[in-house]
Structures are given as structure tokens and as C-alpha cells.
């Protein structure tokens, strides 16, 4: 009789232990941002709205231009095309044509204007504030400038060294 009781207790203990088994694939972690109710709502003092913080342009370097080329390819080229002529693949599929980038008007536009368009959009173009980080937006502006110049470059504008380059 005592043996039977001990046996039952042993089985119950083992069942408890097994019930604790879990491969921990899903864990109930704290994630306050998972719901609006638990997300921290206090805005620290001194915080300015994301889109309104002025962002000075970083220094123009080759790395910035190359970053700009990548970002332009990813976010702009679908509509503006790699050349900036405004006949990208999405335009070919029915999106209203984007204005060409290498026009006299846009070449004369201040860089801040181009930056603001990338940030907030223009016409039917949506803003890219959420997808392109501020420094990368400046990189895009720098690359657009290079793209514009490349299409209005005359042989006479090149230095002798550039002319000699293959």
C-alpha cells in the first residue's frame, strides 16, 4: 500500500517535470511596442517632430556619391529611370511620367529643394522620409546633381587629365 502511494507520487512528480518541457521556440517576451496600450507614450522634452528636424548636408565625398547611386537605384530609378529621364519601369506600366531630372529648372533648384522632395514627396510622388535616412537623402541629392551634370557635359568642360583618362 505504501509502495503504491510512493509510486503514484513519483508518477505525478514526473508528469509535472514533463509538463514543464518546452523547446522555447515561442517565448512570452516583454515587447511594450507590440500594442498601443503598452507602448511608452511619453515624449521626452526637447524632441522635435521627425520630418521637421533640419539636417545639414554632409560633406561631399566619393563615398557619399556612391551611396547616392545605390539609393537612387533602389528608390528613385523605378519611376525616374537610371538616367533620370522619367521613363522608369513603373512609368512604363502606367504610373504618371516623372519630370526629367536634368532640366535647366531642376539643375538650378537649390539642393534643399531636392532634399525636401525626397523627404516629403511632390505631386503623385510619395515621400521617402521613412525609407531613406536623412544622410542618404543628401546622398541621393548629390547623385542627382552628378546625373544632371553628366548629361550636359561638353568636351571643353573636361580638364586635360579627365580627357586623357580612358
Amino acid at each position: 500500500m505504501r509502495n503504491a502511494a510512493a509510486f503514484a507520487v513519483g508518477i505525478a512528480a514526473m508528469a509535472l517535470v514533463v509538463a514543464g518541457c518546452d523547446d522555447m521556440t515561442s517565448q512570452k517576451k516583454q515587447n511594450p511596442y507590440a500594442s498601443r496600450a503598452t507602448a511608452p507614450g511619453d515624449v521626452p522634452s526637447g524632441t522635435v517632430q521627425y520630418g521637421e528636424a533640419p539636417r545639414p548636408a554632409p560633406p561631399l565625398t566619393m563615398a557619399l556619391l556612391e551611396r547616392g547611386r545605390t539609393e537612387y537605384h533602389v528608390f528613385c530609378a523605378p519611376c525616374h529611370a537610371e538616367t533620370g529621364d522619367g521613363h522608369g519601369m513603373i512609368v512604363q506600366r502606367g504610373f504618371p511620367a516623372a519630370p526629367p531630372l536634368a532640366t535647366a529648372e531642376l539643375m538650378a533648384a537649390p539642393p534643399q529643394r531636392l532634399y525636401d522632395v525626397v523627404t516629403g514627396g511632390w505631386g503623385v510622388m510619395y515621400g521617402f522620409a521613412q525609407r531613406i535616412a536623412p544622410d542618404d537623402r543628401w546622398a541621393v541629392v548629390a547623385y542627382v546633381r552628378a546625373l544632371q551634370r553628366s548629361q550636359h557635359m561638353m568636351l571643353a568642360d573636361l580638364t586635360p587629365r579627365q580627357r586623357a583618362a580612358p
Binding site: V74, M89, R93
Partner: peptide, 8 residues
């Protein structure tokens, strides 16, 4: 088909 990059 459209050539949109992953990062878009």
C-alpha cells in the same frame, strides 16, 4: 519583372 530592389 519590374526590377524593384528588395530594399524598396
Amino acid at each position: 519583372g519590374l526590377g524593384i530592389d528588395c530594399r524598396f
